[in-house]
Design a binder for these strands. Sequence first.
DNA 1: TCTGGGGTCCTAGGACCC
DNA 2: TCTGGGGTCCTAGGACCC
Length: 422
Amino acid sequence: MWALIDCNSFFANVERVFHPGLRHKPVCVLSSNDGIIVALTPKAKALGLHRGDALFKVRDTVEKGGVAVFSTNMMLYSAMSQRVTNIIRQSVDIVENYSIDESFANLAGYEIHFDIEEYMRSVADRICLWTDIPVSVGVAPTKTLAKIGSKFAKQYPGYRSVCMIDSDEKRRKALEIFDLSDVWGIGRRSFDKLKSLGVNTPLEFADKPGDWVRRHFSKPGVETWKELNGYSCIDTSEILMRQNITTSRSFGDMITTIEQVKASVATFAASCANKLRGQSSAAGCVTVFLCSNFFREDLEQYYNAETLPFCVPTADTIEITKTALEIVDRIFKPGIRYKKSGVILGKIVHQDNVQPDLFDPVQNRAERLDLSQRIDGLNQKYGLKTVSLGVEGEKQQPWKVKSEHKSYNYLTDINEILTIRI
DNA sequence: TCTGGGGTCCTAGGACCC
DNA sequence: TCTGGGGTCCTAGGACCC
């Protein structure tokens, strides 16, 4: 059996933890630039707000409904996610951390010594007691069914946080009433296709014969079908090394000069390089893209991207930044008002597997990497951008994101720790 | 005026090899 | 007029996830 432990309205609930006055108020968390709503509590949903709504379009509802609004604070959410995961790992041996707010726990063998439902309920209660984050748990023979269980657990308080799908009767009943478009692995396209084929519920899909499914769908569709029928086949075991690393942002204000574009690209390149070293790897190529504001039909539109390879895979901030800026020189077009840029590192290999080049123009790779790592160390100890490249520019720049409702880094910065007045 | 960011996997088709 | 058979590797784009 698998359990899926899913944190309810995770970002919004993390904010609520540190603002106890909001316990019974609607809360929502915004994307970068305070653009759209990315997380919201049930009370905010009840006002008619949705994930994906642009803030400027729903400002009326937000103000009239007394909704507490927060800018996104990933440092805080990551730190809280770590705490939740740690508690799960204390109770179950094999845990796959699937996303920032979800973990799969492998319960094989646990039924011998425990009442699984009560055991997982005790885990859920402990998470709530120790972190104040409410979770919903689904338990089932496959991950896809466990996901469905957790949605039921979230929807109906009667389950007391844990919904177990452990018999064929329960499975069929769940699949009969569950929304087909909410099944894990069935996105917009597959949903439309199933509808057009006359399939309206997960149960109708599960009951189709295997050759029908294989005729209409390829590997992912067949796997979902098997999982719905109780045959476990989706592997989410942990990805130890990312194959691509991206840093991109929309700008607070549109920018026009090449110096500003370069400052943004240099900042994102340094961020990518830092993430790259964090997983002890090196990149074989770098891509830079620039684009204008596609929502502004009155302005000239532009998008361009280019990729350059490295002679030898590298994790050196200076080398990566220099190459990224060469791309800017090639694709920058004057007269455009730029809204977004981004840096993508690709062809990533582990640093121990880097193939040297006999004609490598860089002689001191080890020292260069050491320099980058020492800069990481200083920035880790004294705060972001304590040491950075000059080309990244000053702290205040028009392209920096808007973030007007950001809470403090209560869990990771000693200067921003929660103050309690008695 | 204001509209997010970061990933993975699969497949078909092109280009190439013998 | 007739024009094989069997592969590999790479990439762009689609579909999906959070």
